[in-house]
């Protein structure tokens, strides 16, 4: 039997959060962490977590699994169980609503701040705007972000300043638009990032890179933003 320790907190009942230990029969199978959560919820319907696609593309079920942020649906037990123990907590750094569900308002607010949409006021052609495969390739590793918040909530800089530092996820998206050959908002975008907090609170800790379930590299994108700021200033 696997020992599963889960962070529990219901604001209407509990004065403070606690860890509840469940046991789970793996039947020798290497299932995903989400499968474990689903099974436990079937037995205890009060256990609360978010989930949707269960295949790692919707970004709902980001949780902290045995100390590392990740998506429950694509994290197999074999990767995270140590000494027959599994510990599941909500993503750190943001307020907890209930059990494993966090309040992501600040995370989304940072995303909205970077103007996450194409800016191009030139009249659109009757067909698509053309883009070379080389220019399109610059968006690879950027557009795939699923907004799961695993990276930003693993980032100490975001823990300390979630209201001022955009965080790895938002910055990855900022660069996704800066790097898009169809975008005309570069100047405006850079001007909005050139303060001591938005970008420059990144100290290259690289927790974001380590935890990203899609294998993306926000630190590299942040480096590109810095270079763009630098070359636009000189």
């Amino acid at each position: 039997m696997l020992e599963v320790s889960i962070y529990r907190y219901n604001p209407e009942v509990d004065s403070e959060p606690y860890m509840q230990v469940f046991s789970y029969d793996t039947q020798g199978k290497d299932v995903m962490v989400l499968d474990v959560l689903e099974k436990l919820k079937a037995e205890d319907p009060t256990l609360v977590f978010r989930r949707s696609c269960r295949e790692g593309v919707c970004g709902s079920d980001g949780v902290n699994i045995s100390g590392k942020n990740g998506l429950a649906c694509i994290t197999p037990l074999s990767e995270v169980v140590k000494n027959n123990k599994l510990v599941i907590r909500p993503l750190p750094g943001l307020p907890v609503i209930r059990d494993l569900v966090i309040d992501m308002t600040q995370f989304y607010a940072q995303y909205e701040k970077i103007q996450p949409y194409l800016i191009n006021n030139t009249p659109a052609p009757a067909i698509e705007r053309l883009q070379s495969p080389e220019d399109r390739a610059k968006l690879d590793g950027l557009y795939e972000c699923i907004l799961c918040a695993c990276c930003s909530t693993a980032c100490p800089s975001f823990w300390w300043n979630p209201d001022k530092f955009i965080g790895p996820s938002g910055l990855l998206q900022a660069y996704r638009f800066l790097a898009d050959s169809r975008d005309r908002g570069t100047e405006d975008r850079l001007a909005n990032l050139d303060d001591p907090f938005s970008v420059f609170r990144c100290h290259g800790i690289m927790n974001c890179v380590q935890v990203c379930p899609k294998g993306l590299n926000p630190t590299k994108a942040i480096g590109h933003i810095r270079s763009m700021l630098l070359s636009s200033a000189t």
Partner: peptide
């Protein structure tokens, strides 16, 4: 854009460069 009066430079970039 986050404003802060107590940073040394004009911007995050100048702080970073400095």
């Amino acid at each position: 854009m986050v404003k802060s009066v107590t940073s040394l430079g004009r911007s995050g970039l100048s702080d970073w460069l400095l």
